[in-house]
Design a protein around this nucleic acid. Structure first.
Lengths: 157, 157
DNA sequence: GGTGAAAGGTCATTAAG
DNA sequence: CTTAATGACCTTTCACC
């Protein structure tokens, strides 16, 4: 769908001020309540807003470390099969993609510490179909799921 | 902070049924309303729940492609400087980490198409301090920001 | 438990494409 | 003429004290 400046402003407002009442959104944006309601409905219908969900920070309960892991898959095993096995066996996997290039899958992991990360990587290596892994540790998180500039860029373009 | 089964159940409930009223949460969990309120306050204070925010899906407004980009930085330029420049110049960058290993930074990008991705990569290459990039395209997204199994694992362990 | 407030629904009117 | 926004009504429901 096409997005305009009002949609972008609404998304920014709800991102900056979570759970802001619809009525208050309408006041701050200088539009009627029904407008905000219908815009939100449209954004939901078109899948722009997947849902209003609690944003969980794993650091809040001890998972201070983020790491990336490139996985090579045994060619004889299906990707989906391995993906399914990894997803169910390793709760520390928060992102998982099948990618082009040297490796077959790209994971993002969290762990308590470097030592516990090693233990997680060991568990990954044991999953049937996983041939090889290469990993790197995130020293610093500059951006994580930053969407607002993109939304505003799309609203302009 | 330490998380128990009730916290995990509450987070799962709010994830499955966003914006569920506190009273209804209490009823479904079989606890008093005050318990839910205080648990939520604790989870917020300790940064476990950053906020109840709209989850934006860039595919909803035309960004169908996800890609990863490993960036090598010119050693003479500071990481933070390059990070700042990338963040402000390229709205298509949704994640950005400084990482250990062969490359210096790990990005996640979105784009409309393969051709537009190339254009984004060109813009990244032009950012001062960026020495080299290597990229791969996500063929499939298996998991994206999956937190619940981790929360429940933390509640048990 | 009571109260103030907001959500959600509907509708007629108005504006703009 | 069609789509969208507006402001006003209403009732139910929740959050807070």
């Amino acid at each position: 769908m096409r997005i305009d400046a009002l949609d972008a402003a609404l998304i920014r407002l709800l991102t900056d001020t979570p759970q802001l009442p619809v009525l208050e959104c309408a006041r701050r944006l200088g539009v009627a309540r029904g407008t905000v309601t219908s815009r939100l409905a449209r954004l939901h219908e078109n899948g722009v807003i997947e849902g209003i969900v609690p944003r969980i920070d794993p650091r809040g309960f001890g998972y201070a470390l983020t790491a990336f892991c490139q996985v090579e898959i045994d060619q004889k095993v299906g990707h989906d099969e391995v993906a399914e096995a990894l997803a169910s066996a390793i709760p520390e996997v928060v992102d998982m993609y099948t990618v082009t290039g040297a490796s077959d899958m790209q994971l993002r992991l969290v762990a308590h510490s470097a030592e516990q990360l090693q233990e997680v990587l060991d568990r990954i290596a044991l999953v049937p179909g996983v041939a090889r892994t290469a990993s790197s540790i995130a020293m610093r998180t500059h951006l994580s799921g930053r969407m607002l500039p993109l939304v505003e860029h799309a609203a302009r373009g």
